[in-house]
Design a binder for these strands. Sequence first.
DNA 1: CTGAAAGCGCTTACAG
DNA 2: CTGAAAGCGCTTACAG
Lengths: 324, 324
Amino acid sequence: MNRPKLQDVAARAGVSVTTVSRVLNNRGYLSDDIKRRVDDAVSELGYRPNEIARSLIGQRSTLVGLIVPTVADPFFGELASHVEGALAARGYKMLLCDCHDTPEREEKYLDLLQGNRVDGIISSTHNRDVAGYGRADLPIVAIDRRLGEGIPTVNSDNRTGGVLATEHLISRGSRAPVHLTATDHPGNQRAAAYRERMAAHGLEPRVMAYGYNTSLDERRAAIETWLTVNPCDGVFASDDLTALMALEWARKTGRRVPDDLRVVGYDGSAGLQLAVPGLTTVRQPIERMAARAVDLLIERMTDAAAGATAEAPLPVALRHGWTS
Amino acid sequence: MNRPKLQDVAARAGVSVTTVSRVLNNRGYLSDDIKRRVDDAVSELGYRPNEIARSLIGQRSTLVGLIVPTVADPFFGELASHVEGALAARGYKMLLCDCHDTPEREEKYLDLLQGNRVDGIISSTHNRDVAGYGRADLPIVAIDRRLGEGIPTVNSDNRTGGVLATEHLISRGSRAPVHLTATDHPGNQRAAAYRERMAAHGLEPRVMAYGYNTSLDERRAAIETWLTVNPCDGVFASDDLTALMALEWARKTGRRVPDDLRVVGYDGSAGLQLAVPGLTTVRQPIERMAARAVDLLIERMTDAAAGATAEAPLPVALRHGWTS
DNA sequence: CTGAAAGCGCTTACAG
DNA sequence: CTGAAAGCGCTTACAG
């Protein structure tokens, strides 16, 4: 038998579809008798309202798209998990848009999400120049990335993170720490803070950028080559995975950590923290970032007039392990 | 201005909605002139068909629900990423159902997915006795878990995995390796293989089960206590995170690895592999498992008669690192 | 080659 | 307190 619909419930309960709908939505006055009859029919039939039809009428899908580079990365996996949790608590579902680290997929997904009439989008990728965001006329919130005019961004305090990491390395005796990052563009506040603190101590900053859209293996190779060629006694990596690559290079080449090489990572996702509890790292408040992004998005979804309020960045903290 | 609909396009192109629909879907014969006029109107208006309306008519949503314990766990993050990739390649979207490790959420999501008329479900949680799966009358595929009669399961070769890990530990000189696992129920083939190989070598098997739905911190505490109280010279952990907990315990208590304690994990997700390249582990073919689950599901979605064919388990492999 | 009408499964004014 | 009818944005026989 086919999936029951409203009509079937109505027929079984001996009432009109209007009445069934009202019972289901608890709207208007219903006699107890009718309520019972409808409820019985519903459970006997195992009826479940078709949310697609409801979406079409209500002009809202209670669906939100989350665009991430890939949830295979523990940081984004954790972020996605928290975003999902915050959305579910507010009655929204989440369509996961995993870009597998390619900008083309991001562009495609942006289109698909609009076609599917999602109520909003949360985006946290690092591909620059994805044009679609400007054209989209639905609520969007970015995490740790500027998407364009009028699109609010949730950030943690990247400047302070860069300061904490750099000062920590220097205070532990590092005189020539390098900063490993994906790209060294002007908006990169962690790199800016690193440069500034190095200069303040009279040290020469060195930033090694391996670029986005390089595979993990390529990144590892690039870093190992760089570290081998350029002598240094410290590493401030812009994410934990990269820090671990430096650690592995040290092990392979016989450097002692932290005596020969001090290593500080960034992100502090729970999964990696568990895997390598000793890693010194700057922890981003991942759960709070997710929660705020969801709050901001829902505000914009429900109140069209909501402006792009400038939000204070969320606080980060240094976690000191044995790698430094 | 409101989002344009078919009617607006029709008005602008000076044709009927029927014609616009046909141009959009490339159905029937259309004159080139009309095609052009419609295409122009579409792009001038920035029209995008409402997929919700299409779903309602077509009786299919091209939506698949993925139910996982949590994508904050690198293994499931990677699995989710591959499932998403395989689904996207076939034209399906993925609703991410992150259970945050609780059975109640799983039950709820099962209901929600049916209400949203997803075309199918892929489930990979370990909560036992979730009743909903039996009642659901839509295509379901399980990954690494038996959900019930008629629901196909995609497995990797857990028996061989257990054999490889146990034999490896013994061959490296371990005489008293313990098996750390969530639950030691009869269907657990890794544990069964461990017991069998231990017996074959005349060694006494010891299985320590920490239980599901314990937090990571609780798990760590339980394992550390157990290892401290029960002398052993090897650990076969049923997942990598647990193996890393054993490693951390060894570091804290001054055990040398692998001399005093040999450690073998399970899963071999890319993220953790990168984090701890030296960990000996049994690699599951995560991408292949995801791909097969998607294939199986689509087969069942498109061919109602598709039976629950017994699938051969996918091969696993031992990756030898310095922890053993 | 093109259009008017019915219908997907619901909700919501509007009557009664 | 309950029901008949219109409509959400599309597609699809059915005519012409």
